[in-house]
Every structure is written in structure tokens, then in C-alpha cells.
Design a protein around this nucleic acid. Structure first.
Length: 396
DNA sequence: TCTGGGGTCCTAGGACCC
DNA sequence: TCTGGGGTCCTAGGACCC
């Protein structure tokens, strides 16, 4: 554990099979059985969000189509995700992380970087600090995290993944080269199917191959991305752990179980997406200026259409109206997925909320807030838009 | 029984401005 | 009657991550 006082030290924390582990925690009868969280086989479409290690033995893995998972593991227990519950546990984990460093960068609900540089004076040996974090996560949540400690973010993430599950791996400076040389390029952060193909055409299969390739060659084939990957292959990564993360956009999309041609059904879906997106935006206290609709046709061809408005919007009516304008010319034919995204976010306490709100907008804001509070009290099934509109008409 | 849903970042071309 | 160059914003698509 030879870290000097001024050396950079980064920790990566990653919860093992997170969603599936929470399900096992909450229902002990599941323990030891293959648990697959995502969709249910009878739904048709859907993929695996998380599989526990018992399920992985059958070849089940995340992002796998649910039907394929079922073929491999028909006796598995298939569950829908319960995000609210996962968030509760995630909050506990992040509280522990923030207790050892002010600099915590979430990568997802169950994964984060923590800057440990400079914590030595206060907390002692950073490797022991990291070990303590892992232990406290287990004590507080009952769940196992894999932890990596290394001189930068890239290596810390590789370290945490290296001994999963229940891993604790430290990479010291003089071990970097040996550690990297063993890895296939696909393990590099930023190498997906497309980049892998490009690299393999150049005869590059391992991180060692990549490290020995002249930088010029990579820059020519992959541009800036190639240079970034080359630096990673040298073990070099000076990206800071950045805790401030203003969200860039919020989206809501849905894939039909079977493709849809009926225009009214498509419109109804857009209305539904606008309702849901608007509710989440209100929940987070944001509005946004750019609206994007996404349409995926049968056959998987996908298009997006976007428009940036002079003022930010947030109500369901506004989202629906703008989404319809964008989508209508593209809505013919057989459609697999529809989505709406809002970006160019203006926050609640943000610099510029719209200076003028028309009466119509104010009205529909009030209606939607009322809907929200009814949903909160009685659950989402308690009331729907058509009903509330009818009730209002009757009163007027 | 192909390919979810939530995100981020990058690129390239065009508009527009100085 | 010859069209530079830089900066910013916007749109559409693509790669990638969990």
C-alpha cells in the first residue's frame, strides 16, 4: 500500500447485481435462486436489466432480450424493476460515499467515483478508507459492493470490475502495465461494438496491441476518440472526479409489445408520454426549451425530430402540442417505439424561467398539479385525465 | 424468441453574427 | 463579381454506458 501523500487516488464503487440483490434482500425466499429483473417472458418485448449470479450461470446477462433469457433459464424468477426501492438503497450508499469525500461522481444509481486524493491526513491510509466504505455499505444496506482503488478513474473502474462479485482490488503504479496488458480492448471504457470492429480491422485486439500502436494511426482512423483510447491504453487518465452534474435532459419513451399502425393509438401514446414526462419535470422542478420526438419504425430504423423554442415549457399540454407538430409528418407506417425528450433544461431556481406565462398555461399547470397530488395520495390508477376533464365540465 | 429505457457526449453541416 | 475566419446555436444521427 505505497501511496505517497500527494499521489492521486480514486475509488470506484459498484454494487453487485444491484436490482437483483435488492430483490433478494427484500424477499429472502429468492436467495440462491436465479433472479432476473427487467421484464416478464410473456410480455414479448423487453430485456434483462439485472441478473443475479445464480442466473448468470445459465448465460443470462443484462441487456439480453428477455425471451432469450427465458430460453436459457426457464426456471428463473422474472421480476419487474422497483426503482423507488432501489433509489432508497442507493441514497444510503451515496451517503456513506459522501462521508469520506466531498468529491463523489455518480455514474448511475449503483455506481460512483470517489476522489480520495488528499483524504489521507484526515482519514488515514486511503486503501483502508476504501475498505471501510465497502464494509459500511454491507452493514448499512445488507448488500455487497465491489470496490477498486487506483491512481485514476479509468483504472479504478477496471479494478472494481476485476474481481466481481465482492471484489476489492488495488492497482498500484508499478502494476499498471501488467494489469492492462491482459485485457481485451472491449474492456476499455468507450470501446463499444463499432469501435471494436474498427480496431480489430487494424489488427488491434488487446490493450497491449493498442498501447503499441502509433498514436498517429489511431488519430487518423478514430479522431479524438482514438487519441483518448490510446491514452487509456497507456494507463493515462487525468479526468477529474466531478460531483456537479446538472442534468442535460429528461426523456420518456415506450416500445409497443406489437408494432402499431393506427394513428389514433400513436396520438394517444404521445399524450401519455407528455403526461408522464411533464409529471417528472414538475417533480424535479425543471422546464426546457428543446423538445425532441423519437420514432422507431418496424425494422428498427430510428429518427428524431427536434425544435428549440424561445421559452421553456413544462406542462403536458405544451409538450403534447409541440411533440405532435414534430411527429405528425413522420407518423405514418408501422411503428415500434415512440419517445419524447426535453433538453436545454432551465432549472427551478434557474436563471430564466419564462417571463410571461399565458393564462392557458397557468390553468393547465394548476390542473396538472392537482392531478399530481391526487396521484400521490391515491396512487396512479385512481384518476385519469378524461375523467377529470369531464368532472370539470359538469361543474362549469 | 433479436434489439428496453434512461442517460451522456461527439460530429458535421447550416444559419447567423461580427 | 469571387466568396476570410472565428464563434455560437441549432438539428440529426451515432456511439456508448448502466
Amino acid at each position: 500500500m505505497d501511496f505517497e501523500l500527494n499521489d492521486r487516488i480514486v475509488m470506484h464503487v459498484d454494487m453487485d447485481a444491484f436490482y437483483a440483490s435488492v430483490e433478494e434482500l427484500d424477499d429472502p425466499s429468492l436467495r440462491g435462486k436465479p433472479v432476473i429483473v427487467g421484464a416478464r417472458p410473456e410480455d414479448g418485448r423487453g430485456v434483462v436489466s439485472a441478473a443475479n449470479y445464480a442466473a448468470r450461470k445459465f448465460g443470462v446477462h443484462s441487456a439480453q432480450p428477455i425471451g432469450e433469457a427465458y430460453r436459457l433459464c426457464p426456471k428463473g424468477i422474472y421480476l419487474y424493476p422497483r426503482f423507488a426501492r432501489y433509489k432508497e438503497i442507493s441514497d444510503m450508499v451515496f451517503e456513506i460515499l459522501r462521508s469520506v469525500s466531498p468529491s463523489v461522481e455518480p455514474l448511475s444509481i449503483d455506481e460512483a467515483f470517489v476522489e480520495l486524493t488528499g483524504t489521507q491526513r484526515l482519514l488515514g491510509n486511503p486503501v483502508e478508507t476504501a475498505r471501510g466504505v465497502k464494509k459500511r455499505i454491507l452493514e448499512k444496506t445488507g448488500l455487497v459492493a465491489s470496490v477498486g482503488v487506483a491512481p485514476n478513474k479509468f483504472l479504478a473502474k477496471l479494478a472494481s470490475e476485476h474481481d466481481k462479485p465482492n471484489g476489492f482490488v488495488v492497482i498500484e503504479k508499478d502494476e499498471i502495465r501488467e494489469f492492462l496488458d491482459k485485457l481485451p480492448i472491449r474492456d476499455l471504457w468507450g470501446v463499444g461494438p463499432s469501435t471494436q470492429k474498427t480496431l480489430e480491422r487494424l489488427g488491434i485486439f488487446t490493450v497491449k496491441d493498442l498501447a503499441e500502436t502509433p498514436l498517429e494511426v489511431l488519430r487518423r482512423k478514430l479522431g479524438d476518440h482514438g487519441e483518448g483510447l490510446w491514452r487509456l491504453s497507456q494507463g493515462m487518465d487525468d479526468r477529474p472526479v466531478s460531483s456537479e452534474g446538472d442534468r442535460k435532459g429528461i426523456s420518456k419513451e415506450t416500445t409497443y409489445n406489437t408494432d402499431v399502425t393506427d394513428i389514433d393509438q400513436k396520438k394517444t401514446t404521445l399524450r401519455y408520454l407528455a403526461d408522464k414526462l411533464s409529471a417528472r419535470m414538475r417533480d424535479k422542478g425543471v422546464s426546457g426549451r428543446t423538445i425532441t420526438v423519437k420514432i422507431r419504425y418496424t425494422g428498427f430504423t430510428t429518427i428524431t425530430r427536434s425544435n428549440t423554442l424561445p421559452i421553456a415549457i413544462s406542462t403536458s399540454d405544451e409538450l403534447f402540442r409541440e411533440a405532435m407538430k414534430l411527429a405528425l409528418p413522420e407518423l405514418e407506417g408501422s411503428i415500434r417505439l415512440l419517445g419524447i425528450r426535453i433538453s436545454n433544461i432551465v432549472g427551478e431556481e434557474g436563471e430564466q424561467l419564462p417571463l410571461f406565462g399565458t393564462e392557458e398555461i397557468e390553468k393547465s399547470k394548476r390542473l396538472e398539479q392537482a392531478l399530481d397530488s391526487i396521484h400521490d395520495k391515491f396512487g396512479n390508477k385512481s384518476i385519469d385525465r378524461a375523467k377529470i376533464l369531464r368532472d370539470r365540465k359538469k361543474r362549469e
